[in-house]
Amino acid sequence: MATRRVLIFTIFERFWHWTQMSLIMTMLVTGFAIHGLYVSMPFDTAVTLHTLAALALLALWILSTFWLFTTGNWKHYVPTAEGLGQVLRFYSYGIFQGERHPYRKAYWRKHNPLQAIAYLALKLVLFPAIWISGLIYLFYFAWGDVRFAAAGLEWVALIHTATAYAILTFVVIHVYMLTIGHSFAAHVAPMLTGFDEVDLTPEEEAYLTADEPSHIR
């Protein structure tokens, strides 16, 4: 078993991540302007940006979902209880004792169990909730004449807003997690360069060295 620097985030994943980051930040900033939490942004600008960013994000999600399934990368997100207890114990106790993070990145398991569950929940609960409610909201003009449409819109808006608060909460925790362990910069670096330290089996190391020399340093 050797620890090597391995390409774990391909160009597409990095593009996906940072584009998604920009779009989600745009959605949050413009969404809360539409909601009226602050009024310094003109409403029409907020609606326009929010709508365009939403459409772009939907396209990106379709693209990334296709990518996840065709490349087999979906496997990284399969939830597992193995090691979950250790990770939870680390964040709530061990970290304060100066312990080392219990999880080692593996070649086919780049997220720790807590990350995997968090990202899966994001993909399966929060994202669908926000884009389904958002699309229903966006297409209000098409169903505004049905009975109880006004009351329906209020519920759609409530779900949409509640999900937005949840996603903002995720963002806060996600960014905070980058400060744990190594430096903030060291945590961000893999999503910029694509390379991170991964524990490789001798077979994996041999395979990468022989067949994917550009993926290993």
């Binding site: 160009i11 593009f15 584009t19 960013a53």
Partner: peptide, 18 residues
């Protein structure tokens, strides 16, 4: 540095929006 495409896309979107 592969951050660029994402930023460019965002900028492109903003220019359309304006």
């Amino acid at each position: 540095m592969h951050v660029l495409p994402g930023i460019l896309l965002s900028l492109a979107l903003m220019s359309v929006a304006l």
